[in-house]
Design a protein around this nucleic acid. Structure first.
Lengths: 341, 341
DNA sequence: CTGAAAGCGCTTACAG
DNA sequence: CTGAAAGCGCTTACAG
């Protein structure tokens, strides 16, 4: 292991602050932890001493004595480290950080590998963090359940496919897709297809089911479904080709992710279909690339940063023992109408 | 503050492991820390006990007793939280994580706000982490220097403009730009412009100076410089318009960032310049968008993940007190030739 | 509202 | 190679 060098901290200790303020260590501790029942006089003296001495409490000692880590982990369950470039992850991270700012809670970032899941559970259950935020890319991940079983407070981003009691926050993928489907129907489309995501991810299934519901409502067939196993432009392109060969007359496609929509647009262009005149295209996510696409993509926006924020306050709420927290939360989406549909 | 709930860890302690293995706590500690001078017999007994009991050491206690945090911080100095979506940051993070994996060192992510710099220095100098990795987006940031002064081991990603003794790792921006300039000269371009980055960022100046050197070598003028204050498509577009109005006859442009090159391409297309026939375009970074641009962008690739990895082993080396570490490091770039030049 | 004292779970000289 | 004991810097009942 890395034998991290000794790191002598020369700063003042609680003891010195107490002496400078003319109070006991207990009182200094109370002031630092913003506990009630400290006289204004004592509080002021302590604050002044802290300022004068440039005191910064030792977190390890606080954790050890207080049995509380003042840190939460953001665990990214990944099958390759490319997740980090994913706009979804970046957005969540932004939200988590925003929600944490101003609170004295540190964020520890962990990425799971295939092999070290045992270690991870041990570490996270070992009290090194107070709770866990997890974004699970494949819905079947057993980690959330294991952690919950081990008594670790956890909130998952994106509906997990396994684990009933686990609190999660997700975008309302079903209703987002339903709204997209209704919009296509309302604008006169009569042969509407969909490019769906992987079947083992809740996000994929929820969006597909929303679209299906929309078709059913309108009395339209819902046979034109092509699944892509990956959220990539190429996956979208292959699915689009498949759909076109099965039904050359299709006049609309709901693509369950903007990134796949890029591939679908490419194929439609290559086959000289005019967008939206011949084929209307609606995406999902509202990534940056949606607005710069040709033509600019009509899409269902999800607020990923809000997802991160919501996950964070849910977890902090759990930790604070707040009452009346919802078991899970669905965040609204909104249809952003541009030129492609 | 967030009063993070008590988190009773029910797991076994060192004490129990020692009892189960029939040795003293000291010996267990030595085994865990992989110290020499432990008999094979004792070692095996301890390992077995750890396994049987599912023991996971308490980090806070280790940190407190050992005066070592077993954690490093990745500090992102930001003026707005959009950094997180930046491919540069994502790449660095990926590299840091890759290099850390397998070592028992945690990564704590921190983002600085304008107002809390005092706190940050206090925290980081307070022994909560053993060292700091920092990606500083504006070169003038005083934080690296303050941390170094406070005795905190630090490695900066991207050459800082202030602070002499600070170890940094950067891509070789100067030589990358020089290679781009030479390529344009070699392919017969006679009126070569550049879109440079902000003057207060080392990355901007280094790439500009590399281009200048290339012009000087070829005996070509280096007057066609347009600075953009931001690395955005719009910034690149404005600079391109400026250049075109100053010199309608220009036949090449080296753009100091792919993201700005997108804007430059847009303007060139709008003015009906054929690329590369009328105007050759070379970018820098080799982002994803470079290969999907129209036409695919010839660009200087920098390996951002490698940057993150290198920063990390430099820091770990510092912490381990390794000898012969380079004061700073420049990573090679490479010209990726596509269709735009 | 305040202080003395015990204790959190480890590491590390020290002595053997 | 091993163990007994001190100590890391806090928090928290407990008693006042």
């Amino acid at each position: 292991m890395t034998d991290v060098a000794r790191n002598r901290r020369p700063g003042p200790r609680l003891e010195e602050v107490a002496r400078a303020a003319g109070v006991s260590r207990s009182t200094v501790s109370r002031v630092i932890n913003e506990e009630p029942y400290v006289s204004a006089k004592a509080r002021d003296a302590v604050h002044q001493a802290i300022l004068d001495l440039g005191y910064s409490p030792n977190q390890a000692a606080r954790t050890l004595a207080g049995n509380r880590a003042n840190a939460i982990a953001l665990v990214v369950s990944e099958q390759g480290s490319r997740v980090l470039s994913d706009p979804f992850f970046a957005g969540v991270l932004r939200g988590v950080h925003a929600e944490l700012s101003g609170r004295r809670v540190q964020l520890v970032l962990m990425m799971t590998q295939q092999d070290d899941e045992q270690d991870i559970v041990g570490y996270l259950a070992g009290g090194h963090v107070d709770g866990v935020l997890m974004v699970s890319l494949h819905g079947q991940d057993p980690l959330p359940l294991k952690l919950a079983d081990a008594g670790v407070p956890i909130v998952v981003g994106g509906r997990p496919l396994v684990g009933d009691g686990i609190q999660y926050v997700d975008s309302d993928n079903f209703n987002g897709a339903l709204e997209a489907a209704r919009y296509l129907v309302a604008t006169g489309r009569r042969r509407i297809a969909t490019i769906a995501g992987p079947k083992d991810m809740a996000v994929g299934m929820d969006r597909l089911n929303g679209w299906r519901r929309g078709m059913a409502e309108a009395g339209q067939p819902s046979d034109l479904v092509a699944h892509s196993t990956v959220f990539t432009p190429d996956g979208g392109a292959a699915a689009m080709e498949d759909l076109l060969s099965r039904e050359p007359e299709l006049d609309a496609v709901f693509v369950a992710a903007d990134i796949m929509a890029m591939g679908a647009l490419r194929v439609l262009h290559a086959q000289n279909r005019r967008i939206p005149r011949d084929v209307a295209v609606v995406g999902f996510d509202d990534l940056m690339i949606a607005s710069t696409a040709l033509p600019p993509l009509t899409t269902v926006r999800q607020d990923v940063e809000q997802l991160g924020r919501t996950m964070t306050w849910c977890l902090l709420g759990q930790l604070d023992g707040e009452e009346g927290l919802p078991p899970s939360l669905l965040l609204p989406t909104s249809l952003v109408i541009r030129a492609s549909a």
